[in-house]
Design a protein around this nucleic acid. Sequence first.
DNA 1: GTACAAAGTCATCAACTGATGACTTTTGGG
DNA 2: CCCAAAAGTCATCAGTTGATGACTTTGTAC
Lengths: 206, 206
Amino acid sequence: MTEPRRRNRSATRQRLLAAARHRFAKEGYEAASVRDIAADAGVDAALVFRYFGSKKGLFEEAAATTTPTGLLDGPPEELPARLLHSLLFEDWSAYAGEHPLVAMLRSSAHDEARDHLREELCGTYVRALERLSDAPDAALRAELFSAWMLGIGVLRSVVGTPAVSAATPPDLAPHLAAVASALFERPVAGSPPPPPAATDDPGAPD
Amino acid sequence: MTEPRRRNRSATRQRLLAAARHRFAKEGYEAASVRDIAADAGVDAALVFRYFGSKKGLFEEAAATTTPTGLLDGPPEELPARLLHSLLFEDWSAYAGEHPLVAMLRSSAHDEARDHLREELCGTYVRALERLSDAPDAALRAELFSAWMLGIGVLRSVVGTPAVSAATPPDLAPHLAAVASALFERPVAGSPPPPPAATDDPGAPD
DNA sequence: GTACAAAGTCATCAACTGATGACTTTTGGG
DNA sequence: CCCAAAAGTCATCAGTTGATGACTTTGTAC
């Protein structure tokens, strides 16, 4: 094999990116120092500048969000529930336990972070939710629902409000259905569709 | 008079507090430096430590929020509209243009800020909104509505989402009424009550 | 007018920040 | 085995940070 075994450029990059995601999410851009990130990754801080040019470069690359594929597909009336479920109950431990968009609020003094936030939110979430309404202000409705999800995420993982923090999917489902139905003026499901059930699915293959 | 005229301890304190509110709101706790704050206030940075002991002390005192008196009074069905109106359309220029609770999210890596946020949100807003519902999960409903308001504030002033940023009170009123009514399962007004009309109010004095 | 205390300023410290370049270790081909 | 390039480390720089204590200015009471 032509590649070295111990010293591995791309693996080190990935370790730095993972550590950066953690630190930036938990402490915000300013408070997270390059030295701390490098220490978490187990490498020297100088490698950050070797591989990413600057702290800002590291942040930009670390903040490049991966919207889970398939999240926006499926029946429109299930979309709100699927989005909220992903936001709240997916495993975001790679981002210090919070959804990347929620964690990025800590760095929102930086234009980079704000732009990224807006693009991700508008370009992905709002655009998908817009299809739920035919009203002339469908975009506003979609943003208002996005605001609700983001707010719930903030209350849950940042502020730590008691009721929302302790809420389980069944607790939230009726309210989700009620609010989304009222906002989009059409029936909206309160629970996400069941998972693909990889173990036993005799019905609909292919 | 026994107090000096030019050199005024309390006036200088107030100037420092005002500058601190601005900087902390706009840049977050870490990025806002004591020197910058003091420069904004037009005094020497050493006075910060003279008057507040430390940067943290300054932050705590600057973050002591003043919930507008009377905001929580009045008919319950008008409360949501009044709260949202205060959050979005009141003059928060003292806090760099954002509601203090929204601005404090930038400093949410600090436990101080998080605790303050939770106390203010739960102790004031959620508690007032709880009265809107008799359901066993009234607290959850109140938090969910608070989450919505906070999210709208974030989208409007932090993320800068187009539709919510451009929305006027009449644009929001119907959606506010629909969402709040659905969440609290009772009729809720979409617009705040008209202002006291100090110019011409022959009806109900005293 | 002088003395005293309050109010404000200045110089400075140690720690930390992002960043740079020279250095050392490892790796794999010849 | 040897070497060149890649990968990683080290020492260090200049600037900033929070913080401290000595100093100067101001205002007033006597």
